[in-house]
């Protein structure tokens, strides 16, 4: 029974990692850039929601605040692309990597300046009590996180399969040149993908903050999401979620069954293991440059 509890809390954490990883992968597929600040986006989304809904700040109803926060983060993502990343066209991938890392520092500083560095809890309706199934006690928040992630995944799937914008995004991320010649405004679509990943980060942030306290350093969690994205093979959306779940589940089990000191290494050790033996990720095919 303990196993089930570990599994559920692992899956819930894994969902958050998976959602952050989803953000990486969305952007990577569309622009070949990697947003190393995705974890900090998540943190910012959580704080924006908290700022809108907590009694101490603006005290809006949660169901108003959450969509607003998601919209704000989407706009921020779009603006970031518009004002910053578009100007990097032609610079190396490394430049973008370093820039987004720096952006993470800036976001962390700004969040700290606005909301302080003390851990705070989001007044979220998702975070109420425990759920008893037989002899097992499951956190309501954990269950809610899993459900919301499943719903969001289904929604994104429908979005990419059915809507015109979703299809355009897919086309733009698979073959930029061809999409361009087909009349898809590739740059604008890329901006929207940054917006979408901002929105996904906000959802991840709300879910994360519903499970416990957050502080400006919560974004460092993004590093675990890297592990998730790499294990899932950077180019694949379902892979990112799967990778997130793997990392999420490994953690509580490692903490339970491995000696202290070894347990927190587990996700990174797995990450390095994957990179050493599959330098391009678990589920991806090796690409070589054509000359």
């Amino acid at each position: 029974m303990e196993v089930l509890q570990l599994l559920v809390s692992g899956l819930a954490n894994g969902c958050v990692y998976g959602l952050i990883a989803l953000g990486f992968v969305l952007i990577y597929k569309a622009t070949e850039a990697v947003n190393f600040a995705q974890g900090d986006f998540m943190m910012l989304g959580a704080f924006v929601t908290l700022g809108l809904t907590n009694a101490q700040y603006m005290d809006l109803p949660f169901w108003v605040a959450a969509p607003m926060a998601i919209a704000i983060m989407a706009v921020l993502g779009y603006l970031l692309d518009f004002f910053v990343l578009r100007h990097l066209f032609g610079q190396s991938q490394t430049a973008v990597v370093i820039l987004t890392i720096a952006l993470g520092f800036v976001i962390r500083f700004i969040a700290g300046a606005i909301w302080g560095h003390e851990p705070q809890t989001l007044e979220s309706p998702l975070a109420v009590g425990d759920l008893r199934v037989g002899g097992v006690v499951l956190g309501m928040a954990d269950v809610a996180v899993i459900i919301v992630t499943v719903l969001l995944t289904l929604f994104l799937y429908q979005f990419f399969q059915r809507t015109k914008l979703g299809l355009a995004m897919q086309a733009a991320s698979q073959n930029q040149m061809a999409a361009y010649f087909m009349g898809i405004p590739v740059r604008r679509v890329q901006g929207m993908i940054w917006g979408l990943s901002g929105a996904v980060a906000a959802v991840a942030g709300i879910l994360f903050a519903s499970k416990g306290a957050i502080d400006p350093n919560a974004g460092l969690l993004g590093i675990k999401a890297f592990a998730a994205a790499v294990i899932g093979g950077f180019g694949s959306l379902p892979g990112a979620l799967a990778g997130g779940l793997i990392v999420g589940v490994i953690e509580p089990f490692a903490a339970r069954y491995l000696a202290a000191g070894y347990s927190q290494i587990a996700p990174y050790a797995l990450l390095l293991f994957v990179l050493v033996f599959r330098p391009h990720g678990l589920f991806s095919q090796v690409r070589t440059k054509k000359v």
Binding site: I223, I265, A269, L272, G281
Partner: peptide
């Protein structure tokens, strides 16, 4: 030896992991 086979972001991520592991 393993890092040589990694490119761009994969190397960046692997080295981040390395840096975190150093502490532990």
């Amino acid at each position: 030896i393993p890092a040589i086979r990694m490119h761009g972001i994969y190397l960046a991520i692997a080295t981040i992991a390395l840096s975190i592991l150093t502490d532990d």
